[in-house]
């Protein structure tokens, strides 16, 4: 079926709104009015409502988009049955790409609408699923200490979230905190969870 230029324009406008919303939410937080997003995207305020009737619809769309990206990246890696190190590295790749957005998400989560909160919980559960498959394999091989999976997962998230939420202490204003501390976060966490004989 031929796509009309009107449909192409509509799809481009939607894409522009989504891209701008990612940037504006990252910079100003999720309470920003849609009029600011429209202005920054260079589209009429009414256009946003054509694509996203409520702010919640826009938030939901962005969260699903972010969740799909995270899920697809980790699933691709999981297929290769790779090491926990590769998985954590990929987790950090996605977080670095969406660093501003994700940091807003974890800092403002409790003020978000229920639907957005629930999508976030589903996204973290997907990450936990891939994490647990990789960790289970390593525990079985004897390379990782036999600790409860949820403590291993929550320790990793706690560490990464601490750096993200305190970015001003760990990096310069325009610098990615993940990029700057990636090697140290990864190696320290892996040394904590690995058996003595495996520690580098």
């Amino acid at each position: 079926m031929k796509i009309s230029s009107r449909q192409t324009q509509k799809s481009n406008t939607r894409k522009k709104i989504i891209e701008t919303a990612y940037r504006v939410f990252s910079e100003k937080g999720f309470a920003v009015p849609t009029s600011v997003i429209a202005k920054e995207a260079g589209v009429a305020h009414g256009s946003i409502f054509v694509h996203f009737p409520t702010l919640n619809d826009l938030l939901t769309c962005l969260f699903f988009d972010f969740g799909d990206k995270m899920g697809a990246s980790l699933h691709m890696l999981a297929e290769k049955c790779d090491s926990v190190e590769s998985l954590l590295n990929e987790h950090l790749n996605v977080l670095e790409e969406y660093e501003g957005f994700y940091t807003r998400l974890i800092s403002e989560k409790n003020r978000l609408p229920d639907e957005a909160k629930s999508i976030f919980a589903v996204i973290q559960s997907t990450v936990a699923h891939h994490f647990s498959s990789a960790i289970d394999r390593e525990i079985e091989k004897g390379t990782v200490k036999k600790l409860p999976i949820h403590m291993l997962f929550n320790t990793w998230l706690g560490l990464v979230h601490y750096y993200l939420l305190n970015k001003e202490f760990f990096s310069h204003s325009n610098e990615s905190v993940i990029r700057r501390h990636r090697a140290e976060l990864l190696s320290s966490y892996l040394n904590l969870i690995k058996k003595e004989s495996e520690v580098l």
Binding site: A128, F131, S132, P148, I149, H150, F153, N154
Partner: peptide, 15 residues
């Protein structure tokens, strides 16, 4: 969800 994230049962059931 309880095994991988340690959540309370009712929170895990909701997710």
């Amino acid at each position: 969800i309880i095994k991988t994230q340690g959540f309370d049962e009712s929170a895990a059931c909701k997710i």
